[in-house]
Design a protein around this nucleic acid. Sequence first.
DNA 1: AAAGAAGTCAACCGCGGGTTT
DNA 2: CAAACCCGCGGTTGACTTCTT
Length: 294
Amino acid sequence: MGRSPCCSKVGLRRGPWSTKEDSVLTNFIQQNGEGQWRSLPKKAGLLRCGKSCRLRWMNYLRPGIKRGNISEDEEDLIVRLHGLLGNRWSLIAGRLPGRTDNEIKNYWNTHLLKKLKTTPAAPPLHPTPIPTSNPNQKNKKKKKKKIKSNDKNKTTAAAAELPIKLPPKEETSNKDQRGADEIDPPKTKVYLPKPIRVSSTFSRTNSYDSLASGASNSDAGYAPEKAPEVLSFMPVQWPPLFDMDDADYGMCGAGEDDFLAATGFILPVLSHSDSLSGDVNMLEKVYDEYLQLL
DNA sequence: AAAGAAGTCAACCGCGGGTTT
DNA sequence: CAAACCCGCGGTTGACTTCTT
């Protein structure tokens, strides 16, 4: 497959973005829309590579991004979805509007992984190789390679090994493993200083929007018209897991999610404002449904 | 108070898939 | 059909912050 280098690094800025660069990028995208990342920097007058611009926009500048303070419900959902999907952060992020794959990935690696490892009652970790990244261990760059090409199969195969039953929610949210933000004042650590932009117009891309609008019309997130022939059974009709009427919720991922969409299965998305309401049974249904699909 | 350790997270890297030429 | 290109993803890095001694 032909591949060109990301960009000629000559003369391009790297590292943290300045506020000026942010505003230039934001203004440009607001006027011209997303996409064309390759040529965007040149057109916008940014000395950045397209990738860097895309990343900055997707993870930071994009409207609707929530930052920090991942709630207990979100955390719980992350843990459970990770059990199902493994390290497919973009899919997991798709179920958490306003959260980015990068943020979830970081949160997993820094908070949840540790938490789950130290908690006997924690749900089983997904068999996906666990990152062993250690900031002090340099030069161990990349051994993943060919594993990636099997990502889709990996999810299937790995998930097939998952236990059938979800652990009760309580077990994943005891005092020790919960985000220290909320209940442990002395340990409170809130990363807030960065801009927090939460808007009702969350969308990952324009294509997402179009897909989302279609998907959100389907009742309870189930889109039978998307169910292809491979579907040998009818997915259960989901009762509203979350507030599906909430205009803020995003069906991000519903369209791109080949794995799910290919089976006509669309997992409801956690709303911006609401919570899981402790509906463990519902999560178990979601989980079971995933297992059936796998 | 200072130094080292540990934690956090924004950003980078390189790859693979999909699309265009 | 193959090459070129674009995009998005997951893993990793390293600067910075916070904690511990």
